[in-house]
Design a protein around this nucleic acid. Structure first.
Length: 712
DNA sequence: AGCCGAGGGTAT
DNA sequence: ATACCCTCGGCT
């Protein structure tokens, strides 16, 4: 039995932490192994440099094709390593770091010179080889992190799971069921990789925009406006001011010019607490309905919240189900069962119109969508512009006809889950198996209104957007709120971004010994453990002091989302790859800083607080405070420009995929007899509304008009 | 002026 | 988890 070191660097065979010089790093998967516990350690120094661990050298247990790696052993490299080893001024940690840097960079072998940019001294170097997915050997495109601290592409990981594997491909730790079947994107890594890529392509002056968060104290107005609405449990649907100056029937992205409050526009990846807040920023206006649109005009936006079980989410494309088909009479707000067919009317017809004309449709995803890897863990997130390429009807899972829409992403910004630095490119449509049983199929004829411009390299209106039928919403933002954008140095902005993205969400400092939870949130190990200090995993229950009942597991909620991470906390493993990246970036930033001390940046009017990169490496510098109300300010951002992305390295649509692996199409193959059930009334009966009369005595005069008809 | 809705909080 | 009990904006 051969086993590597675990996430803490302890050998899984002898259980000890081997000294640095006894650690071997696999050239393929970068996993550390304890040399003395290997049955056949590499015989020579050269072999050591080009060493494949037992997992990677044995072709059988790993059926996923691994990209060939180039041999990189040169005598220079060995000499360099020896020099590091003999340098008495370095600590063991430093030595390990240097050595790893050397190895991961690989000897720039002449055979591979085309790929290696000799002058390239960028962050990508730092990342390459460390963050690579062990399956495809590329930087993960949609990174996910196992509880044992290893990072993979979402798709590679899913393939691995689909093969019936239950252990981490790197360290063989058991992968919990929840992670296996519902992996979450690690957005911190998305950021790291994106940043590295954009810095490599020379686009450093445009730091990636993502994960904006508008905090409560910065809101000029709250969603609740009436006294009654504030009464808990009584009303939640009272909306607040809409901050953006677009008409309610505005199509397409919301640009900076329509955002007088922040002058940023609504950015892809922006998150809100709930649908009401989402509404305030204009991304999706209805506070309950999933479709925003008018049957004669088109649909502007949709929400994906898992409300209809027929939905299928593949990130860059998804299959959306129309609304209706349910009996919501009385107070059956939660009725999920269909009792009649959906038809193309109202919102459904609006979507069909947007499909025919090729309008851009904004998409928001809600945490309520539990089956999708792309849904946010919390709240509602704006995911950008999609187009509806086709629509049709089919028999849904419950046997009644549902309206179906194929949405394909076409935004100039990358989706929140991808580490790609460029937006979408036109991509081939996925093959949808259920189409063979579709009826009422509509495909767009004629050219779409929103399309990709080859010359400009971005998506834009090819035809004039439909003129609004409504007036512009005139939010009057507080004067003081308007733009406090200073000409902050771009480098500084970048640095702040770094600091923020790699910060522990508990201590707010740069993460030390980062842990990635199964819900894909990152914290310092000390902070996360500190947050649950003193809590035992098991709660003993006694029955009247007589006998001891079966112990019950304590629930331990992730400090930033509702996920129970008690299991993870039993044996949390440091994400060493992420740790490496943070350390290296720190180093890089310091270098950059030193090299430009005398540059013009220093004449910036206001003294900027020093965004230090001190790691919170000791517990006392990093006070633990869980659930402090996110106290950051809205970030000043460079204007949201309709930027052109670099076209190099176009990482196009993951090849055309079939509809869904396990096929809802099975339903289609046989016409379900239930499709012809007698249609039930979909009208709400007035009488039911009257029932609520009795409790209207809250003393606040905000009776709804609805309460009256019972008397009338 | 209906009526509909991929919401949200609380009680069970 | 799920059942209730509301909300109010916007489409028709």
């Amino acid at each position: 039995m051969e086993l590597p070191c675990d996430g803490d660097g302890n050998c899984m065979i002898c259980k000890n932490k081997p000294p640095t010089e006894e650690i071997l790093t696999c050239k393929t998967c970068a996993t550390p192994w304890h040399a003395s516990c290997l049955s056949s350690p590499p015989p020579t120094m050269a072999a050591l440099l080009n060493w494949d661990c037992p997992d990677c050298s044995n072709p059988n247990p790993n059926p996923i094709p691994v990209a060939p790696t180039q041999a990189s052993s040169t005598s220079d490299l060995i000499a360099a390593i020896r020099a590091i080893e003999n340098d008495s001024s370095l600590s063991d940690l430093d030595k390990a770091k240097r050595r790893q840097e050397l190895l991961s960079k690989g000897a720039p072998s002449s055979s591979d010179s085309a790929k290696v940019n000799a002058t390239n001294n960028h962050i990508l170097d730092v990342l390459s080889g460390r963050l690579n997915c062990s399956f495809c050997m590329q930087l993960p495109e949609r990174p996910v992190t196992t509880p044992c601290g290893h990072n993979f592409c979402l798709k590679c990981f899913q393939k691995w799971i689909a093969q019936g594997k239950q252990t981490c491909a790197n360290c063989r730790h058991q992968i919990p069921q929840k992670m296996a079947h519902n992996p979450r994107i690690n957005s911190t890594l998305v950021f790291a990789i994106r940043m590295a890529k954009s810095s490599q392509s020379g686009a450093t002056n445009a730091p990636p925009k993502m994960y904006q968060y508008v905090h409560n104290q910065d809101r000029p107005d709250k969603a609740y406006t009436t006294e009654r609405a504030k009464k808990s449990g009584k009303a939640n649907a009272c909306s607040g001011k809409v901050f953006v100056t677009v008409p309610p029937d505005h199509f397409g992205p919301i640009l900076a010019e329509n955002d007088p409050v922040r002058n940023m526009g609504v950015l892809v990846g922006e998150c809100w607490e709930d649908r009401l807040e989402c509404r305030q920023w204009g991304a999706h206006l209805p506070h309950v309905a999933g479709i925003a649109g008018q049957s004669k005009y088109g649909a502007q936006s949709v929400a994906l919240s898992g409300g209809y079980e027929d939905d299928e989410d593949h990130g860059e494309w998804f299959l959306y189900t129309g609304s209706g088909g349910r009996d919501l009479s009385g107070n059956k707000r939660t009725n999920k069962s269909h009792s009649f067919d959906q038809t193309f009317e109202k919102g459904n017809e609006a979507l069909r119109l947007s499909c025919k004309l090729g309008y851009p449709v904004r998409v928001v995803r809600s945490h309520k969508e539990k089956r999708s890897a792309y849904a946010p863990e919390k709240g509602v997130r704006y995911d950008g512009i999609y187009r509806i390429e086709k629509c049709w009807r089919k028999s849904g899972k419950q046997g009644f006809k549902v309206c179906r829409y194929l949405f394909v992403r076409c935004d100039n910004d990358p989706a929140p889950w991808t580490s790609d630095v460029h937006g979408d490119r036109p991509r081939p449509l996925p093959a949808i198996r259920e189409l063979k049983n579709a009826v009422d199929l509509i495909e767009r004829k004629g050219s779409p209104a929103w399309d990709f411009d080859d010359e400009k390299g971005c998506w834009l209106w090819k035809k004039a957007p439909p003129s609004s039928q409504k007036g512009v919403n005139c939010a009057s933002p507080k004067q003081g709120m308007i733009i406090r954008k200073s000409k902050k140095g771009l480098k500084l902005a970048m640095k702040e971004k770094l600091l923020k993205e790699f910060s522990c969400q508990i201590c707010r400092k740069l993460m030390a010994n980062p842990l990635t939870t199964p819900c894909a949130h990152n914290f310092c190990k000390a902070c996360l453990e500190g947050a649950f200090a003193g809590q035992s995993h098991i709660r003993q229950r006694t029955c009247e002091g007589r006998r001891t009942l079966r112990a019950q597991k304590n629930i331990m909620k992730c400090p930033v989302c509702p996920t129970d991470i008690a299991d993870f906390l039993q044996n949390p493993q440091v994400n060493t790859q992420l740790m490496d990246v943070i350390e290296s970036l720190q180093q890089k930033t310091e270098e950059m800083e030193n090299s430009e001390d005398c540059s013009e940046e220093s004449n910036d009017a206001h003294e900027t607080p020093k965004a230090t990169f001190d790691t919170a490496d000791s517990a006392e510098t990093c006070p633990v405070q869980v659930n402090n109300n996110l106290k950051e300010q809205v970030e000043s951002k460079p204007h949201l420009e309709t930027q052109k992305h670099e076209t190099n390295g176009v990482h196009d649509m993951p090849t055309v995929d079939e509809g869904s692996p396990e096929g809802p199409d099975m339903d289609d193959s046989k016409e379900l007899p239930t499709a012809h059930k007698p249609r039930q009334g979909n009208k709400r009966k007035k009488g039911n509304d009257g029932d609520s009369e009795a409790k209207e005595d809250d003393g606040v005069k905000t009776r709804s008009k609805k309460a009256k008809p019972a008397v009338a």
